[in-house]
Write a protein that binds this DNA or RNA. Sequence first.
DNA 1: GCCAAATGAATGAATATACATTCAGTAATT
DNA 2: AATTACTGAATGTATATTCATTCATTTGGC
Lengths: 194, 194
Amino acid sequence: MKIADKHEKIVHAAIKVFARNGFYNSKIAEIAKEASVADGTIYLYFNNKYDILITIFEEEIGRIILKVKREMAKLDDPKEKLIRFAQIHLSLVEENKELAEVIQVELRQSSKFVKEYRNKKFAEYLNIISQIVKQGQAEGIFRKDVMPGVFKRAFFGALDEMSRFWVLSSKKKYGVNTAAQQISAFFLNGILSN
Amino acid sequence: MKIADKHEKIVHAAIKVFARNGFYNSKIAEIAKEASVADGTIYLYFNNKYDILITIFEEEIGRIILKVKREMAKLDDPKEKLIRFAQIHLSLVEENKELAEVIQVELRQSSKFVKEYRNKKFAEYLNIISQIVKQGQAEGIFRKDVMPGVFKRAFFGALDEMSRFWVLSSKKKYGVNTAAQQISAFFLNGILSN
DNA sequence: GCCAAATGAATGAATATACATTCAGTAATT
DNA sequence: AATTACTGAATGTATATTCATTCATTTGGC
């Protein structure tokens, strides 16, 4: 087995275990077992338990941001971009339930380091939204009195809460598309001029 | 000092300490110190560390739900109710930053028990929103194609993300009222018929 | 009104446990 | 044969919880 494989195997085992128990209730031994690896092996790839969490963050979230940005670049119309953003956000959550749970639950943990770290990556993600709003305002499609800094949080928050519901409950009455359409419709009709 | 006072003192010390360090990084000794009480005394009032968290949840959140419900009962117009809900939610967060942080961060922790517990109280809170939507739809003020179950999450999520920003960053560019107005405007214009 | 038992609240040092981390030894790869 | 990867039992630490003891308050007998 190649080294990269083992690193990845441990990261994915950790995502599973953290999602199941939460970071503080997860034992290294459990991650090791899930990855079919000895406890000690984990320390050949990571400095400590905490480091695994940070790695999940770095590697997996970076990937997601990239994906969304690329998708946005394909579209011109800010209105369409917003709808697509909602769709892609929710479907990424759906496809990566365990990762989503770790991000949503654990990375809100208040360790100063994680908090600052989260904020950087997170700000980048939120700014994709405010950029869309600014573009729309420049083009006269969105109302000028909409504050992009408030909007980005409100829009993201709406999607995020919706995802939490999915991640935690698992018995959903409506699909990703319905939810994405509803949510972007709430907001869009709200910020479209006239 | 009355017994009730000591119980309260410990709860409030715990809110402070949990907000500062997170639940798992908070030591009973620190809570005891913050409450000016011996470590052992805490076990006269609570079964264990966990029990303190649950108590915070029960007592403090129950209070908040009650407050919001009362406030809603004063109004008739669903449109006004929604605006007022946003205002009161955000200002309650502002007035109880530490509690808000504990709720937002710690009670998302994935211990099964807390999760289920949160869900009960939380569902109650969310349903205040969907009730408003249903009322508005019955009165013909809100569009019929709005799904109350999606709306409640989107609306709450928007407010919640806004609060998180406040709680975590503390340097805000706009006040509670601005944010509440913006957010309810996004949604209201989005769900009002024609 | 005073004192001595009795009660039970509060203390904090001692205990017990749970786990992250280490490392001496083993296996695999070159 | 040497190097590198891996193992998992042993170690050390951190801290939640306990409990024997102290302290404060109340009770009631004189």
